[in-house]
Amino acid sequence: MNKLIIGAVLASTFLLGACSAEEPEEPKEVKASVPSGYERVASDEFYADNDVSVIMHKETKCYYTLASGSYDTTVSITQMFVKENGVSVPYCEK
């Protein structure tokens, strides 16, 4: 009987200690991080959890799109191209 009471007291102490009186923190807004060597030029959010940014490579001055999906589970970087004299060329500052 004593073991049962001691066990119940220990279990309730453990459960009460695990509970927190503080309010849970709100989730922080997270955007896909820009890879090193790039800088974010523009950014836009569409739908609830999707983000698209235009980033520029600091050395080559070429532009890319950085898209992140829901909760950053999908991230893609795509180089931007323009047509010049009928030929696709990378979109870069000269």
Rank of each mutant, 00 (worst) to 15 (best):
I6N: 12
V41S: 07
I77G: 05
V52D: 13
T74H: 08
N85E: 14
A18Y: 11
Y63C: 00
V54G: 01
M56T: 06
H57Q: 05
G86E: 08
C92V: 01
S43W: 05
T73K: 15
D49K: 14
S68K: 13
V82D: 13
V9S: 07
V89A: 08
T13R: 00
L16C: 08
I6W: 09
N2V: 07
V30I: 04
A8Q: 14
T78V: 15
L10H: 09
M1Y: 02
E39G: 11
N85R: 06
E26H: 00
G86F: 04
P90F: 07
A48P: 03
T74M: 01
L15P: 01
S12R: 00
D72N: 11
T74Q: 11
A32L: 06
S76K: 11
H57A: 07
K3L: 14
T78R: 14
L16N: 06
M56K: 13
L66P: 12
G37R: 10
Y91G: 01
V30N: 06
S36G: 13
Y47W: 10
K3I: 12
I6A: 14
E93F: 10
I55Y: 13
L10T: 12
E93G: 04
S76N: 08
E39I: 09
E22W: 08
T73S: 02
T60R: 04
K94P: 03
V9Y: 03
I77A: 13
E22R: 03
S33Y: 03
I77C: 01
F14S: 15
I55A: 11
V52C: 06
K94Y: 06
G86Q: 03
V9H: 07
Y91W: 04
K58Q: 15
E22H: 12
M1S: 12
T73R: 06
G17C: 11
T13H: 02
S33W: 03
S88P: 03
T13D: 11
Q79E: 02
V52Q: 05
C92T: 05
S68N: 15
A8E: 01
R40W: 00
T60D: 15
I77K: 10
L15S: 09
E39S: 14
C62Q: 04
P24T: 08
L16M: 07
D51N: 10
Y63H: 11
L15W: 02
N85I: 03
L15H: 09
V75Y: 02
N50T: 03
S20N: 08
A48C: 05
Y47L: 15
T65L: 10
